[in-house]
Each structure stands twice: as structure tokens, then as C-alpha cells.
């Protein structure tokens, strides 16, 4: 009898994430789920629906819209949030956009700082949120490996890696004073492989850009950049049609596609097993400088 009382790996991760989401809803006055439209966000929202069933989501979804994201993402966002009856809020750093911020003139690092990091900090401040739930995972990047599940941010939204609250067992200390906040990472212990297996197991809808099909792209260095409205073609570049898919979603100039034949979550999992490259590799911004993710996180990036 006791033999059968073992949870499968994915169900154990699921139970842990549900526990974290319930702690968040119970401990904070005004939590929000940061919804980036990506696959991790899809999984996060799915887990949140499970956590509060048969009740509704007890917090709104917040999307930081840089205005440079793929149109398919926005279409998916609007359809998906309507289908599940979630409250969607959108924030854009209009001040920066109106002042002419764009990746081509400012470079990706500065653009990302203004349209993502600053926008996030401002968006959270404007909504007066005391907790922001994100889909970050510890396996994504080295400085994330030291991130807590409940990660404290000071009044300026900054992360101080040398002075984090110790986190023991599954007891999460979410106590904050006014103006301070907690970033919550319910997917901390999931790997990319777990995410795809769970998407397959639970039949979770994700943006079609994740699945391979022939797309018109520009080959720039190691990266394939899908031809979208606001991608600038540089001198000497020729659009080509290549079978490819996105491993992570972001802004059009910064997130590239990879060559792939994987058109379903099952074939993506098979492809992952043979993969030897990490998923953030095609994010131009993470490699701006050594340790750049840590620098962004200290400033408030998710």
C-alpha cells in the first residue's frame, strides 16, 4: 500500500508551486502575477487556476508591454486571458517610448533597461503591489540559482544578493513594510524539461511561435531573427525561409529563433534531450557583459 504513496516528479513540483501560490495570496494585500505571455507564464497561470479552484484567481495578471513584442504574443495574450476570465492589466513605459526609446538607436542593453526593467519597477509602483509573482526558474542562469522563492526587494525595487532572507523548509517569510515588496518564484525548482513535459501532460496552450514551421528569417551571427514589422534588415542581409522555432519569447530584435523540426510539445521534449545549449542563449541581452543577468536583477529585472 505504502508503495503507491509516491508522487510523480511533475506532480511533486506542481504541489510545491500550488503551495507557494496559496502562501502568496494569503500573505499579501495586493499581489499581482507578472504575465510575460511565454511558456513559463502559461504554466504559472495554469498552476494558479489549480491553486484556487473552485474559486477564481485572487490576483490580476500584469503584462509589461514593451511594444516590440511579436504580434502573435499579443493576440495569444488577449484570447487566453479572456478565455480563463482573468483580469489583465498592461503597463508600458510611455515616457521612454515617447522620448524615442528603441533598440536600434539605444542598443539592446539600454532599451531593455528602459522598456523592461524600469517599466516593471514603475508598473509595480503604480499598482502599489506588495508581491509580484514571476515565472523565473533557478536553472535558467547562474545568478538565478541563488534566488529565493520569496525574494525581498527594497523600496527602490532592488535585489541585494548578499543579504537575502534565509529560506528554510517550505516556510516563506513574506512580511514587508510599506513600499517594500517580494518577488515570488513558484517555478524555482522546475527545469526547462519539466516545463515542456508539464505542458504536454496538462495540454496547456502556448504561443504558436514555440513550435517549428517554415518562417522568413534573417540569419545574424548564430541567431535567426524572424522577419517582423519592426526588424531592421542590415546591409548584406537576405531574408531566408527556414524551419525554426522560438525557445524563449521576448522583443523581436532581441529574441532569436533556432533551427528545429519540432512542431509539437512531444517533439520539443525529444529535441531537448539531445540539446546541449541553454534556452537563454538566444536572448541577446543576457550576454551583453559577463554577469549581466545579475546586474539587471539588482536593478529590478525579473
Amino acid at each position: 500500500m505504502a508503495q503507491s504513496y509516491v508522487l510523480s516528479h511533475l506532480r511533486a513540483l506542481e504541489a510545491e508551486s500550488i503551495h507557494i501560490l496559496r502562501e502568496t495570496a494569503a500573505q499579501f494585500c495586493n499581489p499581482v502575477l507578472l504575465y510575460s505571455i511565454g511558456k513559463d507564464s502559461s504554466v504559472l497561470v495554469h498552476l494558479a487556476r489549480k491553486a484556487f479552484y473552485p474559486g477564481k484567481l485572487p490576483f490580476p495578471l500584469l503584462h509589461i508591454d514593451t511594444t516590440y513584442e511579436y504580434p502573435e504574443m499579443i493576440e495569444f495574450r488577449d484570447r487566453f486571458t479572456k478565455e480563463i476570465g482573468a483580469e489583465l492589466r498592461v503597463y508600458t513605459n510611455l515616457e521612454a517610448i515617447n522620448a524615442g526609446a528603441n533598440p536600434y538607436d539605444l542598443g539592446t542593453a539600454k532599451c531593455c533597461h528602459l522598456l523592461r526593467t524600469r517599466a516593471l519597477v514603475e508598473g509595480l509602483r503604480e499598482g502599489n503591489y506588495d508581491a509580484a509573482i514571476g515565472g523565473g526558474r533557478r536553472d535558467e542562469e547562474k545568478s538565478r540559482a541563488k534566488e529565493r522563492v520569496f525574494s525581498f526587494r527594497d523600496k527602490a525595487g532592488r535585489w541585494e544578493p548578499r543579504n537575502q532572507r534565509p529560506e528554510l523548509w517550505n516556510f516563506y517569510n513574506g512580511a514587508v513594510n510599506p513600499g517594500e515588496s517580494i518577488r515570488v518564484f513558484p517555478l524555482s525548482n522546475w527545469t526547462e524539461n519539466d516545463i515542456w513535459r508539464y505542458i504536454e501532460l496538462e495540454n496547456i496552450a502556448v504561443v504558436p511561435l514555440y513550435f517549428a514551421k517554415p518562417r522568413e528569417v534573417i540569419v545574424r551571427g548564430q541567431t535567426l531573427i524572424p522577419l517582423q514589422s519592426n526588424v531592421k534588415i542590415l546591409d548584406g542581409e537576405q531574408p531566408e525561409i527556414i524551419n525554426c522555432r522560438m525557445r524563449t519569447l521576448g522583443c523581436t530584435p532581441c529574441s532569436g529563433a533556432i533551427r528545429s523540426e519540432a512542431g509539437t510539445s512531444r517533439s520539443i521534449i525529444e529535441e531537448l534531450v539531445s540539446f546541449r545549449r541553454s534556452e537563454r542563449e538566444n536572448r541577446v541581452i543576457d550576454h551583453d557583459q559577463e554577469g549581466s543577468m545579475e546586474l539587471k536583477k539588482r536593478e529590478g529585472y525579473f
Binding site: 536553472d139 541563488k146 544578493p161 548578499r162 537575502q164 524555482s188 525548482n189 527545469t191
Partner: peptide, 10 residues
């Protein structure tokens, strides 16, 4: 190494 880090392998 300064802080606890979590690693995943299988």
C-alpha cells in the same frame, strides 16, 4: 561561494 545555490541535474 557566498550563498546557497540550487542546482538541478538528472
Amino acid at each position: 561561494t557566498i550563498d546557497v545555490a540550487y542546482r538541478y541535474f538528472s
